[in-house]
Design a protein around this nucleic acid. Structure first.
Length: 223
DNA sequence: ATGACGATTTACT
DNA sequence: GTAAATCGTCATA
């Protein structure tokens, strides 16, 4: 076998909400042109549900050259260009022809941090700024339109490695509304974002979903 | 052919 | 907190 830890097709063949949760704690691995490993633990994801989802690029069945990769088989990458300067990466899921995908919003850097700093253009950038945002992580791992439609199950340069089970406690998972989709109507507030509570690499914290800060809760007398 | 708009980031007040 | 950067994409004409 090529690599026992690599996520197989079956890992990706799920609905977007399931895969978004399943990806938390797994490792995104990028092999650079010089063969170096750049990798980080996925700590923040968002699910996009395709045709019914007003915030999805495939809303209402929209199918164009840009979002074509969303309709590919599970395990494909969907990388899109936005705001005239940024790339964002999704992991395509569900089955071929069904446009569901999971946006990777933040990683905790684990391997090749110096190469990431180089890619980000700042040799002294703190770890916590390296991959905390969908466009930041793409820049850090040198992911752009060339990786669009790449098959993460077969690629030798970009793939997911599975961590051991129970790498993090279930209570560490925060579920909250997605960010940057203010005009998506009913879909704006749906709980389709997941991240690891307390992880300093999260791009945007949701205080409301996290609940009261334990440090600010006054001790209560036992009865 | 044209115009409005980003699944964001950064710098600045 | 607010605003600028910057251009591919898509809907409309």
């Amino acid at each position: 076998m090529r690599d026992a830890r690599r996520a197989p097709r079956s890992f990706f063949a799920a609905d977007a909400a399931t895969l978004a949760r399943r990806l938390i704690g797994q490792r995104l691995v990028r092999i650079s042109s010089t063969g170096e490993r750049l990798a980080g633990t996925i700590i923040e994801t968002e699910a996009y549900l395709g045709a019914p989802d007003r915030a999805s690029h495939a809303y209402n069945g929209r199918r164009t050259p840009r979002n074509e990769a969303m309709y590919a088989q599970a395990g494909a990458a969907y990388v899109y260009f936005t705001y005239g300067m940024h790339y964002c990466m999704n992991v395509v899921c569900a089955r071929e022809g069904v446009a569901q995908a999971v946006l990777l919003r933040a990683l905790e850097p684990a391997e090749g941090l110096d190469a990431m700093r180089r890619n980000r253009g700042d040799a002294s950038m703190p770890d916590a700024a390296l991959c905390s945002g969908p466009a930041r992580l793409c820049r850090a791992l040198a992911i752009d339109r060339r990786e669009n439609a790449l098959d993460l199950v077969e690629s030798d340069s970009l793939f997911i490695e599975l961590a051991r089970p129970r790498a993090h406690p279930v209570r560490a998972l925060v579920v909250c509304p997605r960010v940057g989709i203010a005009s998506a109507g009913d879909w704006t507030m749906k709980p389709l974002r997941w991240y690891l509570r307390g992880n300093p690499h999260v791009s945007v914290r949701d205080r409301r979903a996290e609940g009261p800060d334990p440090r600010s809760v006054k001790p209560r007398k036992r009865s």
